[in-house]
């Protein structure tokens, strides 16, 4: 896919301009930037929901404006932020509707379509919800269903506007894994994200969409190295410092963490070595069964906390103390 000097906007009013970018197969391009900067507008223009104001978008060799909706539907699928309210459709029906481009004149689904649907349901981990009415699902589940629908469409290009919205942290991380997996099979992904940490982690390149409508194409490393986030989101020094520390780029101030590799239980947690800390074992809630975090017991009888940093958050202090009290005096 190639964007050449694309200008996007509504009613001939340009919101984002001068976007030139060549996207390779299997790349993940993420749009980041402040609200109202035009991320959605650009996404909508790329997916063909808005018509181009200027410039060209080519898919393969062909100009997108020369392709019919039918032709586009066979190479590109979309997830929008629009809230859909279908009547009497189950989760499965919604996912299955992604197969419509491959059906005949009456839109009847065959066995192959059902199979693709099963795969997509499995991939998005919503198989157990397949028969649930769409209207009864939570917002996060609905979002996962719509992503499964887009995957089910067997696209070459997956275009998503804030796919992580409504999802909890676990499903966001899972989605990133799924997206990585999809790119391995050659699918190209263009999306917008609010979560900078996810964007930096998962993307090959970032498209910075500024408030005034100009854009920059950068790699995740250059975004941090050149301090571009500060200008992009118009942050002051303190805010920027906080953002960076949230992203784990605050100059290695993890001095309180240590690793005792000689410990007989090492490595007791599923954490990469550079993030490993024996402070996990000093967790005040280590022997509390209902500690509020996610964990399982290893065969050595040690709690494996799976990235749980519940007790490290200041906001959780009262909860930590409450849990300790519960353990000492019982729930009454």
């Amino acid at each position: 896919m190639k964007l050449t000097d694309v200008q996007a906007g509504y009613n001939r009013k340009i919101v984002v301009g001068g976007v030139s970018l060549e996207i390779g197969q299997g790349e993940i391009i993420t749009l980041i930037g402040p609200n109202g900067g035009g991320k959605s507008t650009l996404i909508k223009t790329i997916s063909g929901a808005l018509s181009l104001i200027g410039g060209t978008v080519t898919i393969g060799e062909q100009d997108i404006t020369s392709l019919s909706a039918k032709e586009i539907s066979k190479t590109m699928s979309v997830v929008t932020t629009e809230r859909v309210k279908p009547q009497l459709m189950t989760c499965r029906d919604v996912v299955l509707s992604g197969r419509l481009p491959f059906t005949g004149g009456f839109g009847l689904f065959g066995a192959a379509d059902q199979e693709e649907t099963d795969k997509a349901l499995e991939l998005m981990n919503i198989r157990h919800l397949a028969d649930r009415p769409f209207s009864d699902m939570s917002d996060g589940q609905k979002q996962r269903t719509l992503i499964a629908r887009a995957i089910c469409q067997s696209p070459k290009y997956l275009v998503m506007d804030e796919p992580t919205s409504y999802m909890d942290i676990k499903h966001r991380l899972e989605l990133m894994k799924v997206l990585k997996k999809l790119t391995e099979s050659g699918i190209t992904i263009v999306m917008s994200l609010h979560e900078l940490e996810l964007a930096l982690e998962v993307s090959d390149r970032l498209l910075l969409v500024y408030d005034d409508g100009h854009v920059k194409v950068e790699t995740p490393t250059s975004v941090i190295a050149d301090g571009l986030l500060k200008g992009l989101f118009d942050l002051d020094d303190e805010m920027y410092r906080k953002v960076l520390s949230g992203l784990g780029h605050d100059g290695g101030r993890h001095s309180g963490y240590f690793v005792n590799r000689a410990c007989e239980f090492y490595p007791c947690h599923d954490v990469p070595d550079d993030k490993f800390s024996c402070m996990f074992c000093y967790c005040p809630l280590f022997d509390v069964e209902d500690c509020g975090g996610e964990y399982f017991m290893t065969d050595k009888g040690v709690k494996n906390c799976r990235n749980c940093t519940f007790v490290h958050y200041r906001d959780n202090y009262t909860n930590v103390i409450k849990k300790l009290k519960e353990k000492m005096y019982g729930t009454d």
């Binding site: 929901a49 019919s68 586009i72 590109m76 929008t80 992604g98 629908r149």
Partner: peptide, 12 residues
Amino acid sequence: RLGETYARSVGV
């Protein structure tokens, strides 16, 4: 049934 945008995205 899933709205206009999704209808377009499946080739309508």
